[in-house]
């Protein structure tokens, strides 16, 4: 017994080091495969407030650019309106609406890591919950991962954990959008498209209908280069994003009002198998 205690005292620094290293490694490997820990992320009160403070200062430098973006988006929407590409307001009543849009701002953005997260200034008080889709005026951005009262973190599409259903516009062949070449932050990869699908460089990629997170036909990017993968039966497609991931200000969070029903139904079907 005495010897054990002596041993512990002599190596207490080393044991402390091993203990702390073990804790950090457990955290790391958990975040590799599951959602982040609930409290230790940048959506908590302290980090959120500090990032808001810093964003309040820096956002002034991009106001003109931000305005131009919004005017550009308004123009696009008006084009659609005047050409009757959207339903007239009388047809849109609250019972036939599937999606609700909440606006927000990015207060912290990262794109140089392997798993990038974006912090936004909307949280549970604005009825944000996990697994809502986040888009900008140009295209998709990511999925809400953690929420606190006033802030949320968003798992960016620039993350090796990200996997989003996407399809080729006008042909409905769908695949998965992943980020494999993790050094290039303007290019993501589309996999699992069968080789019989005709492709051209410059084709538009949009979100698919298989997801209960994003509505169909939200723009993602254009085909930059494509090649067959190792099995020679599927394409491996480089998609150049419409979004400039380094410069994001205003965002929209999409709430799918039918998501609960869809998930319940799917769970029920699986349980019956």
């Amino acid at each position: 017994m005495q010897q054990i205690i002596n041993f512990l005292i002599r190596y207490k620094i080393f044991l402390l080091y091993l203990f702390l290293l073990l804790i950090s490694c457990i955290f790391t490997f958990q975040s590799h495969s599951y959602h982040q820990s609930k409290f230790l992320n940048s959506s908590n009160y302290i980090t959120g407030s500090i990032y808001t403070f810093s964003d309040d200062i820096t956002s002034y430098f991009g106001l003109r650019e931000e305005n131009n973006k919004l005017v550009e988006e308004n123009k696009r929407l008006r084009d659609k309106l005047f050409n009757n590409l959207v339903l007239s307001p009388a047809l849109i009543d609250s019972t036939s609406v599937d999606y609700e849009v909440i606006r927000g701002r990015v207060i912290n953005n990262s794109y140089a890591d392997q798993r990038n997260y974006i912090t936004i200034n909307k949280g549970e008080n604005d009825s944000i919950v996990q697994d809502m889709g986040v888009i900008t005026d140009k295209g998709i951005l990511g999925i809400v991962e953690n929420t606190s009262d006033n802030f949320s973190t968003v798992q960016s599409i620039l993350s090796d954990k990200s996997n989003i259903n996407a399809k080729i516009k006008n042909s409905n062949h769908f695949g998965s959008l992943v980020w494999e070449n993790t050094t290039d932050y303007n290019v993501v990869q589309l996999i699992d498209i069968p080789r019989l699908v005709p492709l051209t460089i410059g084709d538009t990629i949009v979100t698919g209908a298989m997801s209960s997170i994003f509505p169909e036909n939200i723009p993602i990017g254009t085909i930059k280069r494509f090649d067959l993968d190792n099995s020679k039966s599927f394409y491996f497609i480089d998609v150049e994003l419409f979004n400039d991931m380094t410069n994001i200000g205003t965002i929209y969070i999409i709430k799918n009002l039918n998501r609960k029903e869809v998930l319940e139904l799917e769970a029920e079907t699986e349980a019956n198998d």
Binding site: I23, N41, T119
Partner: peptide
Amino acid sequence: IILCFFLGLCVDIFSDTLAINAAATV
């Protein structure tokens, strides 16, 4: 060592990289 662990952890919480900085700093 404990102080350095918390230093790394603080940076981790801010940059959502749990807990790579803590492991390296320790």
